[in-house]
């Protein structure tokens, strides 16, 4: 490919968004699901709601086994919190366990849609142009997503090391030794933040001057997805079982 021979129209391949789902749609979807998971407390309804993020994360990530693994990893946290909720809230144990477990799984699977489906750098232009969000805030959100993606990768490396050091021996140790995991992860986060600061400063990052070349648009199936989600949640709240 020789530079100067093409017209600008031939550069279309370089203006295609990287995100598999429009970042705005993904965030609205997350917002609806988090709200539904928080407000809804009936086990049957939460189970139906959970089906939505699982389906979308399977489609967006194209890694169903990976998503199931993440759900399995989140399960002990859900069960642990469920026991806590049962004791503190004086609730029936099975209901408390299932309610919290389903809520945690809804949050986890919804997050995987953002993790696998959205390019964080494609979110701020939408927030700035569509919602008139100040550029500094919009890009802070994007950087938070990037940090989140990095820390997830770091977490895998940390867990491998802790397993090798015999600090994590079984699944229960993920709960018992959560303070060790968090301690190492927090220091990783500090180091990553310092590295990111250098990477941004050295390359003149400035939310006010940054210009994107991406052609970001909302597709029909994405609007349909939001509509469908809203309809299901409204129907469940009206006719859902206990």
């Amino acid at each position: 490919m020789k530079i100067g021979e093409e017209s600008f129209n031939n550069y279309d391949i370089y203006t295609e968004p990287t995100s598999r789902i429009n970042p705005l749609i993904a965030n609205i979807f997350l917002l609806i699901l988090v709200s539904a998971a928080t407000i809804e407390s009936r086990v049957y309804n939460l189970s139906v709601i959970l089906f939505l993020p699982i389906l979308i994360s399977f489609i967006v990530s194209r890694k169903p086994i990976q998503i199931l693994k993440i759900m399995l990893i989140a399960a002990p946290f859900g069960l642990g919190l469920g026991i806590f909720y049962s004791i503190i809230g004086n609730k029936e144990i099975l209901t408390a366990l299932l309610t919290i477990l389903l809520r945690i799984e809804i949050l986890t699977t919804s997050s995987t849609i953002l993790y696998y489906g959205v390019d964080p750098w494609e979110l701020p232009p939408i927030l700035i142009n569509k919602f008139k969000t100040p550029p500094h805030i919009s890009y802070t959100i994007a950087l938070a997503f990037i940090m989140y993606q990095r820390l997830i990768k770091d977490l895998k490396e940390i867990i491998d090391s802790l397993r090798s050091k015999n600090i994590i021996r079984n699944e229960l140790d993920y709960i018992i030794r959560v303070h060790v995991i968090l301690y190492v992860l927090v220091y990783h986060a500090i180091r990553r933040a310092e590295e990111m600061e250098i990477a941004l400063e050295a390359r003149n990052f400035n939310p006010l001057t940054r210009n994107t070349r991406k052609n970001l648009r909302i597709r029909f199936w994405e609007i349909l997805l939001i509509a469908l989600t809203l309809i299901i949640i409204v129907l469940l709240s009206m006719f859902g079982k206990l």
């Binding site: 490919m1 530079i3 100067g4 600008f8 550069y11 370089y14 203006t15 390359r203 003149n204 990052f205 400035n206 001057t209 940054r210 210009n211 994107t212 070349r213």
Partner: peptide, 17 residues
């Protein structure tokens, strides 16, 4: 880097290529 400098999309693409 070019996007951070606020270059026009065509210039960004050409310099990146």
């Amino acid at each position: 880097g070019p996007e951070n400098l606020g270059w026009k999309p065509k210039k960004v693409i050409e310099s990146t290529i």
